[in-house]
Structures are given as C-alpha cells and as structure tokens.
Amino acid sequence: MHPHYLCQAIADTPRVAVYGTLKQGFNNAHWLNGATLLGSDITSALTLYDIGRYPGAKWQPSKGVMIEVYEISIAQLAQLDRLEDYRADAPTAGEYDRQQITTCFGLAWVYLYNPSVTGKTAISEGGWHMPSISNVQQPR
C-alpha cells in the first residue's frame, strides 16, 4: 500500500514532465517503462542547469526548454520520488522537490533541483545533452 501523500498526488496529477535523464534515449528512461508518453512540450517557466551527469531545473524564465510528458501510475510516481530524492515530509531537504507545472497536456509533476546552481551552466533554450563518458566526473 502506498502512503497517503502519493495517493493524493496521483489523484491530483497523474502526469510527470521530464527534462533530463528520464527522457527517451537517456540512461534513466527505463524508470518510465509502462508509462504512456503523451508527447513533447516546450516550457518557458524553467531554466535547466548542467549539474554534470544530469540536469537540474529551477523556476526561472527561459526561452523555452524541451520536456516530455508522461501519464504515470502511483507506483511509478513512488519510484521517481526515490530516484530524485524527493522527501514529502521535507521537500526542500532532498536533492529535488516535486511541484506542478502547466503543460499542453495539463498539469504535470516536475522535479526541481534544490541545491544552489551557482557556477553551473544555465540552459535557457532547447534541452540538456548527456555528456560523453569521458567527460563525466567519476565519484571519488
């Protein structure tokens, strides 16, 4: 059985908007296996930041960044919350917060990056591109 907050979240908004490694063709796309891709959209409400191995989004105006919108289940939302380190009891304490964004498919959940992006490269138009393996900094 899923926690009440997940049941309420999926009842309110059964969609998620993704902008990085969860998009088709990227290394975390498998987390959305079984979800229904509704399509792509462009949002000017977010600016992406290149964090290195993945991007982070902030509520900052942009020229338009590309997102994919999926219809998801409660189980998929729970998995995404774990992947993104979303903490329902303290949303700003995890790596990402989950909030709603308006898309052409209706409201969707989007994961917003909590840490500072000072010194990170902003992506205010288009989308994030996965770095090649040789450019990825390995964990210490």
Rank of each mutant, 00 (worst) to 15 (best):
A11C: 10
A88S: 05
L77R: 09
P131W: 15
L112C: 04
L48C: 07
A75R: 13
D89P: 00
V65R: 14
F26P: 00
S124F: 08
G94W: 11
V16K: 09
E68R: 08
Y5Q: 06
I10M: 14
L80C: 08
W128C: 03
E84G: 05
T47R: 12
Q24R: 15
D97I: 00
I101N: 05
M1E: 06
R82D: 12
T121Q: 14
P61I: 03
L83Q: 14
T121W: 10
M66V: 01
G126C: 04
G25D: 13
K58M: 05
G20Y: 12
Y54C: 03
A35E: 10
L32S: 13
H2Q: 09
G126D: 03
G127K: 10
A90Y: 12
Y111E: 07
H129A: 09
L46C: 03
A35W: 09
S134P: 00
D12Q: 12
G20N: 07
R53H: 07
M130Y: 12
P14W: 11
A93G: 00
V69I: 14
L83S: 07
R98T: 00
K63Q: 15
Y5I: 01
N135Y: 05
C104P: 00
Q8P: 00
A75F: 10
T43M: 03
H4A: 14
T21M: 15
T13E: 09
G126Q: 12
R98I: 01
S116H: 02
D12E: 15
Q100D: 00
T13G: 01
E71M: 09
F105H: 15
W128M: 07
I74M: 12
G106P: 03
L37R: 15
K120P: 00
S40L: 08
F105R: 09
S73L: 02
A122Y: 06
T118E: 15
Y70N: 05
L22S: 06
A88L: 02
I123W: 15
T43H: 07
N27I: 02
L112S: 07
Y54V: 01
Y49W: 10
M1I: 02
N135T: 02
L112V: 04
P91W: 13
L80V: 01
G52A: 06
A29I: 03
Y96C: 12
A17K: 07
E95Q: 11
G20K: 12
S132L: 07
P55F: 12
G94L: 08
R53T: 02
H4Y: 04
Y19T: 01
N27G: 03
Q99L: 11
E95L: 14
Y49S: 06
L22T: 08
L38E: 11
